[in-house]
Each structure stands twice: as structure tokens, then as C-alpha cells.
Design a protein around this nucleic acid. Sequence first.
DNA 1: AACCTCGCCAACCGCCGAGCA
DNA 2: ATGCTCGGCGGTTGGCGAGGT
Length: 187
Amino acid sequence: MGKATCCDSSKVKRGSWSPEEDKALRTYVEKNGIGGNWISLPQKAGLTRCGKSCRLRWLNYLRPDIRHGGFTEEEDIFILTLYKRLGSRWSVIASQLPGRTDNDVKNYWNTKLKKKVLGSSSKHKHKHTTVGISSNNSSNSHESVTVERTTVMAIDNPAGVGSADELLTMDFGQWISSDLFNWCDFV
DNA sequence: AACCTCGCCAACCGCCGAGCA
DNA sequence: ATGCTCGGCGGTTGGCGAGGT
């Protein structure tokens, strides 16, 4: 359908969100919820923003359960492994990491992990190079996350994975320390 | 001190699919 | 069956701060 109809650039504000706008959006959503319609939400909340912009701001920044920055080594490997299996399905990858958004994961991948992988790719041409996965600094090691088991298992079936219906719960730390994958599989 | 370069990340853009009339 | 609206997604951009020269 092309360009979204809600975002008439002549009528909506763009660019960075001010603290006042954040407060207005947060207050409205916490009081009324999303209400099933992002397009009409800005008007109700007293904002001159595009509905899609409000949605993005809420999901990526204002949501109370969001964590920013500070990706752990375990999360790195988790992202790398799922990226290898799924490709750039950031929303699926992010859904497995509590408090992380697709935008966060995508940015992290583009700015850091990709370079890390490319760097290690040139350095480590052989398999079984050890990666320092320390359980000591693993703040998330016992966090229970939902993992698509078929995704994890289907190492040789990258095209056949990705169904959100197949999500199963398992322990993140246990998964991280398992032998199902290793860093050098990726490179 | 001033300028330049680079990296990070918030936000935008445009497409797709689901749902509904 | 068709067309429209809206939510959601991935790719990309641009502003800003940090570090280097």
C-alpha cells in the first residue's frame, strides 16, 4: 500500500522526542493502554506525532521492561547463533531476549557484533577456538527465556525454522552452556 | 582551541501481511 | 474477490558526542 497514511509530514512533528512528549505518551498509555489503535492515540494523548512514531517510541524506549545497552557475552552468542539460524529476523531474535527490542538488537548487531564476527572470521580460521563464556559475570544466566527449540536444534535446516508457534521454554543459561553451538560455527 | 572523523543509536522510511468492510 | 486501514518489520539515515589530529 506504500506510504503510511498516518504520517503526513506537514502535520506531524518529527525528530527526537522531548521529555514532555515522553511524559505525555507514557502517562496516556499507562492510564489507558494502547487501546488497539496507534493511529488515533497521538490525538488522544495530545501529541502531534505520527502514530507509528508513538508506537516505536513506546516499544523501543518508554516501555517499563526495556533494558538498554550492556549486552552480555551470553547475549552476544545468543544473537550470533540465532542470526546464523534465522538471518535478520530481529523481532524473533529480540523476543528471545527479555527487555531487548528488535531495534536494540539490530543496532547492536550493525554497530558491534557484525564487526566482531568479521574480525574473528579473519582471525580464527579453524574451528573450536574457545570463547570466554564466563558464568561469573552472567547476570542473565538463570533468566528463563522462551527459545524456539526447533531453531536451536535445526542446525542444518535454516530455511525451515522461524515459526513462532513452536516456541518452547527453556533455561537461557543452560542453553548457553550447552554444546549445541559454538562460536566458530558462525565464522 | 578548532576541526575532523568515527561510532552509536534513536528515529524514519517504505514495504508487507492480516483483518475487516 | 477486492480494496482499504493499520500494525509490524527490516533497512537505512541523520544527529550527536567522543576521541583523534
